[in-house]
Design a protein around this nucleic acid. Structure first.
Lengths: 171, 171
DNA sequence: TATATTCATTTAGCTACGCTAACTAGATAT
DNA sequence: ATATCTAGTTAGCGTAGCTAAATGAATATA
């Protein structure tokens, strides 16, 4: 058996595990008005400081129109707030509202509590394996930043954000 | 920090990793006409022998109407074949077609190959961690069979299946 | 035997969320 | 001045989730 086969086998199992995991969590998700897509995007807004729509789409591996719609809904529900950039009229900065921040925390808690209960039935060793695996995966899947600061110098970011979000090129 | 907090933290990270993993794979999925939901269901049909719609829905953590529609599409595309039970007219047995079997294998290969390439960049240790994690997860998420053979005795299964699928109660 | 209940699947209708193509308007470059 | 590029939106499509209700078959009960 070749190395590439091993990788394929692992990839397959990961894929299937991910599908089943998300299906399992979906019910809890929607019970509280934070769909999986929303919860994921909102967490970037809450933890990642002010962020533009395009960057959020990139971070979430989603097309810009998809993110526009997602944000529209969350804005209607008072979870995020738009703010246009003072220097570049095309850019929209997204900020979490206090309601958004609260919802995110509550939602995440509720959403994963069923899973957390099941995790409690595992051995310490297995739990540690899952923890490491999720870190490895996030590292592996983190979108590569394609543009250095030098390439895309000061054009924004003076205006709202104290915490400067790293901007990255799409694709 | 309490044990339950640890479990929540791990659950959160797993959740987020699963979302990003699936988004990453989606493109490749659809490139070959086997959507994630289809691929997952088809693999149960192919590897799990003939199976009924209800049991497939249960195995996939999906409602019966959702599975009906999924199967409808796959039947139209010649990936699965319906066969009604000779004894119980309500039951529909699903069989893979040869095209379905072929598609599944080709699809899985293509679908995960991008991920497999990335896995190749990891250390052996990390790869092993991911492999163990996916096994732990599948074990944790496997739907519990609620009905023993004794409770639901011979009522079907004489007709088509050589390999007797285990039937389980829904919720 | 007739009737009621249970069961597997389907139909109908809703929502969320992916996508691409095409458009608008602002910013930058020639 | 004009052209090109960029960020975001609009329009429109498809897949996949769901619940509620219908259909038709099987089983249990009076």
């Amino acid at each position: 058996m070749q190395l590439s086969d091993v990788n394929h086998a692992i990839a397959n199992r990961l894929h299937s595990a991910a599908i089943h995991l998300l299906r399992r969590l979906r019910r809890h998700d929607e019970a509280m008005g934070l769909s999986p897509a929303r919860a994921s995007a909102l967490s970037v807004v809450v933890f990642g400081g002010p962020v533009t729509i395009g960057d959020l789409a990139h971070a979430e591996h989603v097309s810009p129109p998809t993110m526009t719609r997602l944000i529209l809904g969350m804005e209607r529900d008072g979870l995020v707030r738009r703010e246009s950039d003072a220097r570049d009229g095309r850019i929209v900065w997204l900020h979490p509202t206090s309601k958004g921040t609260r919802f995110l925390h509550e939602g995440r808690d509720r959403r994963v509590s069923a899973l957390a209960e099941q995790l409690a039935t595992l051995t310490d060793r297995d739990r540690r394996t899952l923890a490491s695996a999720s870190e490895i995966l996030e590292r592996l899947l983190r979108p590569a930043a394609r543009a250095s600061a030098a390439e895309r110098p000061e054009r924004r970011a003076v205006t709202p954000p104290e915490v400067r979000p790293q901007r990255a090129r799409r694709r």
